[in-house]
C-alpha cells in the first residue's frame, strides 16, 4: 500500500543520504522524495512517498526513527492529510494549439509562466493524480519536457509535525 512519510531531520549535510541510503540498503521503495529547510533553519522537512506491506511500513517507520539525525517521523497516511505536488510542463504551442493549451491550463487551474512563439511552460499544482490527468488530457505529442517535485504532505487540522 502507498504511504506518505513526513520527517523532521537535523539540517545537516549527510542527513538526506542517511535517509535515502536506508531505503536502498534495506530494499524499500521510494516513489518520490522532497526535502527543504523549514522555518526553523536547524531543521529540514522530508516527505517520502513509499509503498509496502504493513510489516514493511512498520519497519520503515522504526528504521527512520533509529537514524540519529531524524528528529521526528509521522506516517501521514495513517490519518487525514493533504498532499500537493508541483509540475512544470513545457509544451509545443503553435497556431490553434495555443488557445487549446491555454484553455486546458485554466480548466486545471494552472498558469502559464513562460511564453515563446513556439512554446508555453505551464505550472500546475495538485495531487499526483491531478497532474497525471492533465498530462492525459493534452496531446502527448506536444509535451517537450515535464518536471515534477514529488509530493509534499501535511496533516489536516490539529495533526502537526513540529518540535
Amino acid at each position: 500500500m502507498r504511504h506518505i512519510m513526513s520527517l523532521l531531520t537535523e539540517n545537516e549535510a549527510g542527513a538526506l543520504s542517511r535517509v535515502s541510503g536506508l531505503f536502498s540498503a534495506r530494499g524499500y521503495n521510494i516513489e518520490s522524495l522532497t526535502v527543504a529547510p523549514t522555518e526553523d533553519p536547524t531543521l529540514s522537512r522530508i516527505t517520502i512517498v513509499t509503498s509496502g506491506s504493513d510489516a514493511v511500513i512498520e519497519q520503515i517507520f522504526k528504521q527512520l526513527n533509529k537514524l540519529i539525525e531524524v528528529v521526528a517521523v509521522m506516517d501521514l497516511s495513517e490519518g487525514e492529510h493533504l498532499e500537493r505536488e508541483l509540475m512544470l510542463v513545457k509544451v509545443r504551442a503553435i497556431g490553434s494549439v495555443r488557445e487549446e493549451m491555454k484553455r486546458m491550463t485554466d480548466i486545471f487551474r494552472g498558469c502559464i509562466i513562460d511564453v515563446t512563439d513556439k512554446t508555453y511552460t505551464i505550472e500546475l499544482t495538485g495531487t499526483g493524480q491531478k497532474l497525471e490527468s492533465f498530462l492525459q488530457a493534452i496531446d502527448r505529442s506536444l509535451i517537450l519536457e515535464t518536471v515534477r517535485t514529488g509530493a509534499s504532505g501535511i496533516g489536516r487540522g490539529d495533526r502537526i509535525l513540529k518540535l
Binding site: A55, E58, Q59, K62, Q63, N65, K66
Partner: peptide, 11 residues
C-alpha cells in the same frame, strides 16, 4: 532496546 528489532522477521 531497539524497537526496530521487534517484529522485524517474526511477528
Amino acid at each position: 532496546i531497539d524497537p526496530s528489532s521487534i517484529s522485524k522477521r517474526v511477528k
